[in-house]
Design a protein around this nucleic acid. Structure first.
Length: 421
RNA sequence: GUGGGUGUGGCGAAGCGGUUAACGCACCGGAUUGUGGCUCCGGCACUCGUGGGUUCAAAUCCCAUCACUCACCCCA
């Protein structure tokens, strides 16, 4: 029996990693344009960070964390998301002392113990960004605009932004109360899932797939109807900024976020054609988080996108990444003597940054030509018995089959000169 | 945790009870002897996820098991 990788994990082969680098380069470009700087945090953190940061009632904490005790008896958890770590780093490095807002981005693997399916893995990868230290609604809109800019640069189409405000803790308390009041007479008619949601998180009942529950909740007060003046004004401004920037969105009062730390703005961007896991990114404001995990009362807003889902979206929309040439010159040696003569040339050409390949299987000239062709080599250098004796090599242009003879000693200079012209 | 689907060579995919398990792609080699992209020819599977069972006979039927996959829950 051979050993295979754990469930819900992936190997990314060269054809995949090429796409990753491309997408990451666009993300870095966009981050630079928006003024966000890179943050790298550990892949594991103290379990407490997530208990307090993500919230003890969330599914992530209750059933999805990879938690273990290390040899020092500390409870450690592989990070299930990035915001808590970023917030922790903000506090730990006293970034409140920097000019605000502090705008950071990160990317890397996240871990959640779930049954894998399309667009969902146990080790998955997120890119995320966080802006700490300002409650300006323009910053909420900036975060959404960032995602929008990124997707347009990538060429993705058909995205829809769902936007909501989940209010502050006061609005939420008020809403929860009104919602429970509204539903209480029909409590017995709700499905079993929703009956348990009723106490914990009645907002979730809006999401239930059960038609009966849907009809019961139809007409129930939404969070938007319960916003306090401050939250209402904030939401209005967020929408206004988006509209002015020409970013389309639609308000969905039923949008709920699964992590406890969200306040006010909540949004996600959906793309229907990548399966059931259609949320390609999600985020919002979390004004209570930093204080919750032990910092000063500091605002924050951010979002995270799922890399694997971005790739699925690119796949379904047929988005190709720009082709990068894999080989500039293929050195064809016929026989060991020729290979010995060509090997140092390969090393020095590569030292000049020229993509140089040669054969390691003792193949025929014809086969080596085929390989050179397949690699997309622009030139081939051929060294056989006759050339070796004469101290020359054949320099062949693969595109038009023109070839001439150059000196063996000057091969590096000559080839690099011709390639660069 | 719950439910559905699938499991044949590197990949895709026929075969669904009966002699040596199609085909396509990829890969390797060759087409009068040192030259590519097209075409043609040839090569590449002690074997149908694994373990039992039924049968004269199973990749084909049954059971179990594992893996993968999709969906629910929830989320990126």
């Amino acid at each position: 029996m051979s050993i295979t990788r754990p469930k819900g994990t992936n190997d990314f082969l060269p054809s995949d990693t090429e796409k990753w680098r491309y997408v990451e380069s666009i993300l870095r470009e966009t981050a630079a344009a928006y003024g966000y700087e890179e943050l790298r945090t550990p892949i594991f953190e103290s379990t407490d960070l997530f208990l307090r940061g993500v919230g003890e009632t969330t599914d992530i904490v209750n059933k999805e964390m990879y938690t273990f005790e290390d040899k020092g008896g500390r409870s450690i958890t592989l990070r299930p998301e990035g915001t808590a770590s970023a917030a922790r780093a903000y506090i730990e490095h006293k970034m409140h002392g920097l000019s605000q807002p502090v705008k950071l981005w990160y990317t890397g693997p996240m871990f959640r113990y779930e049954r894998p399916q399309k667009g969902r893995f146990r080790q998955f990868h997120q890119f995320g960004l966080e802006a700490f230290g300002s409650d300006d609604p323009a910053l909420d809109s900036e975060v959404i605009a960032f995602a929008f800019t990124f997707y347009s640069k990538l060429g993705l189409k058909g995205l829809s932004v769902r936007l909501n405000s989940v209010g502050c803790p006061h609005c939420r308390q008020e809403h929860k109360r009104k919602l429970q009041e509204f539903l209480r007479p029909h409590l017995e008619e709700l499905c079993s899932d929703c009956r348990s949601r009723f106490e914990k998180n009645p907002l979730r009942i809006f999401d239930c797939k059960n038609e009966k529950c849907q009809s019961l909740i139809n007409g129930a007060p939404t969070i938007l109807e319960c916003l306090c003046d401050e939250c209402q004004e904030h939401f209005t401004k967020v929408k206004a900024y988006l509209t002015r920037a020409g970013i389309p969105y639609h308000v969905d009062a039923k949008l709920v976020r699964g992590l406890d730390y969200y306040t006010k703005t909540a949004f996600e961007i959906l793309l229907e054609d990548i399966g059931a896991q259609s949320a390609i990114c999600g985020g919002g404001r979390y004004d209570g988080l930093i204080k919750e995990i032990g910092g000063n009362d500091t605002c924050g807003v951010g979002f995270a996108l799922g890399m694997e889902r971005v790739f699925a979206a690119m796949e379904s929309q047929g988005i190709e990444i720009p082709a990068v040439p894999k080989c500039d010159v293929f050195l064809i040696a016929l026989g060991d003597k020729a290979k010995e003569a060509l090997f140092p040339a390969a090393v020095s050409l590569r030292g000049k940054g020229i993509k140089t390949e040669l054969d390691f299987l003792g193949r025929s000239l014809k086969s080596q030509m085929k390989t050179a062709d397949r690699l997309g080599a622009k030139y081939a250098v051929i060294l056989g018995e006759d050339e070796l004796a004469a101290g020359k090599v054949i320099f062949r242009d693969m595109s038009d089959a023109q070839q001439d003879t150059i000196s063996l000693e000057e091969i590096t200079d000559e080839v690099s000169r011709r390639i660069k012209q």
